[in-house]
Amino acid sequence: MLGWLLQRVAQALLVIVAMSLVVFLGMHAIGNPADILLAPDATQADRAELIAQLGLDRPLWQQYLSFAGSALQGDLGRSFVYNVPAVTLILQRLPATLELAIAATAFSVIFGVPLGLYAGLYPERRLSKLITTGSILGFSLPTFWVGLLLIMTFSVYFGWLPASGRGETVHLLGADWSFLTLNGWRHMLLPAINLSLFKVSLVIRLTRAGVREVLPLDYVRFARAKGLRRGRIVMMHVLRNIMIPLVTVLGLELGSTIAFAVVTESIFAWPGSGKLILDSINALDRPVVMAYLLVVVTLFVVINLVVDILYRILDPRVREEASA
């Protein structure tokens, strides 16, 4: 187990180094941050001064080495635009995105699994067909448009839920969270639904396909022949066996939602990290982009780790393989 973990960490480090190089070169190729950061009336001398101040006048390899050097000491630099440490900036915004992504993923499990299960167990019923057809909408409607539709319906037309912002937050573990207040939930509901729509559909599809595949298998028929209750067969034998692909996909989805929830965040003016990274790329705010990608890579690695551990819990075969 330990060796496996170390291998994983080594892999992650390699990914991080490669990524940092690619991003560093990429940002450099796009343009000079000084041109964007300066006020429009700045003179040529101001420009030269700023370039020197940001260290952009040095050769690229020097810039990279000094970045890598301070990064190893835990210093990822200060944002050019906001003049605060890049990591602080990201950690300020990340909780907002994190709770949104987790809520969306939770929705997808809460709604997706039962609906998919139903559609898989009773494929001929009309409701099942409705569920399956409905999930196509979830795949195909653009998030941007659905977001506006949600706002127009629930905020403007009915006036039930707020259209923008994060609402009240509670300070806990060094960050502000809105899932701890009712007002926060009211603000989170629409963006979370918007983000979860695609995922709900995905989970419905996966669950349904899994159930259809597993039901005719021998062990299910055997369990039925043994006279087990239907509920027990579904929960213990069917659901458990289709969980593995589901966990894999959900893990990947959670990661990509955290990293790239930017469309939903901008429609709902949700102050998360997606908006931050987009602004930072546009402003060529290199320290923030680098720090953000480091955080995201780390997150992906952690999520993958959790997924692997879940495999072990869910599937005895993987457990045995590992211990063997």
Binding site: I151, V156, P162, A163, S164, I267
Partner: peptide, 9 residues
């Protein structure tokens, strides 16, 4: 678009 929506709601 979000600004307009925020005003309308």
């Amino acid at each position: 678009a979000a600004r307009t929506a925020a005003l309308l709601s």
